[in-house]
């Protein structure tokens, strides 16, 4: 499987990244936040590309018998939420807590808009019970 090989490589890479960050903090402590952010985002996108997105596709295919949008929406919004939380944490670690909570809030609204159509169906169904 693709995921198994990729997983091992990613785990090794994460240790290498950790060592590089330690080296940077010794050699150029003033540049450390900037380089940390750059490496963090590079590593995050690498991780998303090699592990998370293939797994997401695999997950959606696994739950194919479910009615169409649900599996896709659930795993999609969960991944979106998790990534947004990760980035927000990173930003607030750098000392910009309010900016972090702002971006997280925006992503939450984006997730809600994804579910808007399903919510409309639900409200329709429930209101059909009440009205004749």
């Amino acid at each position: 499987m693709v995921i198994d090989d990729g997983l091992m490589i990613i785990l090794v890479q994460s240790i290498v990244v950790f060592l590089i960050l330690l080296l940077i903090s010794f050699s150029v402590p003033k540049l450390q936040p900037l380089l940390y952010a750059a490496i963090f985002f590079y590593f995050l996108f690498h991780l998303l590309n090699t592990i998370v997105f293939p797994f997401g596709k695999y997950f959606v295919a696994l739950f194919e018998p479910l009615p169409e949008p649900f599996a896709k929406l659930l795993i999609g919004s969960a991944i979106l939420f998790y990534v947004s939380e990760l980035i927000a944490k990173h930003i607030s670690e750098a000392g910009y807590g309010s900016l972090a909570s702002m971006t997280h809030f925006a992503v939450k609204i984006a997730i809600l808009t994804l579910w808007m159509q399903q919510t409309a169906t639900l409200i329709d169904l429930l209101s059909k019970l009440i009205t004749k």
Binding site: L66, P67, F70, L73, L74, S77, A78, F81, Y82, E85, W115, Q118, T119, T121, L122, L125, L126
Partner: peptide, 17 residues
């Protein structure tokens, strides 16, 4: 961290389907 919403979404699926 998403578990609160997973529960809500599961209730969604149950109610709709």
């Amino acid at each position: 961290s998403f578990s609160k919403w997973t529960r809500m979404i599961l209730i969604f699926i149950v109610v709709i389907v």
